[in-house]
Amino acid sequence: MEIVGKVAEGLQNFRENRLSGLKPPQEFFDHRQLSRPRDMNEATHRVTYNTRNFSGNYLLIVVILALWALLTNPLLLIVIGLFAGGFAAINKFGADPVTVGNQVITQKTLYIALFVIGIPLLIIADPFSFFFWLIGSSAILILAHAVLMEPGVESEYSSVEQV
């Protein structure tokens, strides 16, 4: 139960810190602020400002892309479920050794069996392509938005000290 409490607390902190900074869709998708930067210096300034300003929205984009990639790769989803379910079942039911015939099945034996079955399936599911697709697609979408979106007027006053 202690683990569930920590996970719930972590999700609560995540929601308060990251998702509270979400900008409304009208501001995030404001087509009137789209323009091509004049030079590399302006593009760098836009990326710096927009990644800070829209960090919650960008994180949401990464999460949505990850969910999309998992749903379109059912074998990877099954393998993740196999590992999660296997670990949960072994921790819940496999703590005490069980004797079957002449064999003693311990928790260590169950973990080895889970990895012997799960690792080849994981290799077939190709999590590396999932990972690199997620990085590439997220980077392209986020950088394209950050470069093309003009910073608001408040960006001009970001370097001014608050009294």
Rank of each mutant, 00 (worst) to 15 (best):
residue 131 F to A: 11
residue 146 A to G: 10
residue 85 G to Q: 08
residue 104 V to G: 05
residue 99 T to L: 02
residue 100 V to K: 09
residue 137 S to V: 14
residue 39 D to Q: 06
residue 123 I to H: 08
residue 42 E to D: 11
residue 145 H to D: 01
residue 154 E to W: 05
residue 61 I to D: 01
residue 71 L to V: 08
residue 153 V to P: 13
residue 134 L to S: 08
residue 129 S to L: 11
residue 110 L to C: 04
residue 134 L to G: 12
residue 144 A to M: 14
residue 27 E to W: 00
residue 89 A to S: 14
residue 122 L to A: 03
residue 66 A to Q: 11
residue 20 S to I: 00
residue 158 S to R: 13
residue 135 I to A: 14
residue 129 S to C: 09
residue 17 N to G: 13
residue 55 S to F: 10
residue 36 R to I: 15
residue 21 G to A: 02
residue 72 T to F: 11
residue 119 I to L: 04
residue 116 V to I: 08
residue 72 T to G: 11
residue 118 G to C: 00
residue 15 R to T: 14
residue 15 R to K: 15
residue 101 G to D: 15
residue 61 I to V: 13
residue 97 P to C: 03
residue 99 T to A: 06
residue 97 P to D: 03
residue 40 M to V: 13
residue 155 S to Y: 01
residue 114 L to I: 07
residue 9 E to H: 10
residue 82 L to D: 00
residue 57 N to W: 02
residue 155 S to Q: 02
residue 18 R to T: 15
residue 86 G to P: 10
residue 74 P to T: 02
residue 163 V to A: 07
residue 157 Y to T: 15
residue 33 Q to L: 10
residue 84 A to R: 12
residue 72 T to W: 09
residue 23 K to I: 00
residue 19 L to A: 07
residue 89 A to F: 11
residue 7 V to W: 02
residue 159 S to P: 06
residue 160 V to N: 06
residue 117 I to V: 04
residue 97 P to M: 04
residue 123 I to W: 08
residue 13 N to A: 09
residue 120 P to I: 01
residue 10 G to H: 07
residue 127 P to F: 01
residue 62 V to C: 14
residue 95 A to R: 15
residue 83 F to N: 01
residue 79 V to N: 00
residue 60 L to V: 06
residue 101 G to H: 11
residue 83 F to G: 03
residue 90 I to E: 11
residue 15 R to E: 10
residue 133 W to I: 15
residue 150 E to W: 03
residue 104 V to P: 05
residue 48 T to G: 12
residue 127 P to D: 05
residue 26 Q to S: 12
residue 158 S to P: 04
residue 2 E to G: 07
residue 115 F to I: 10
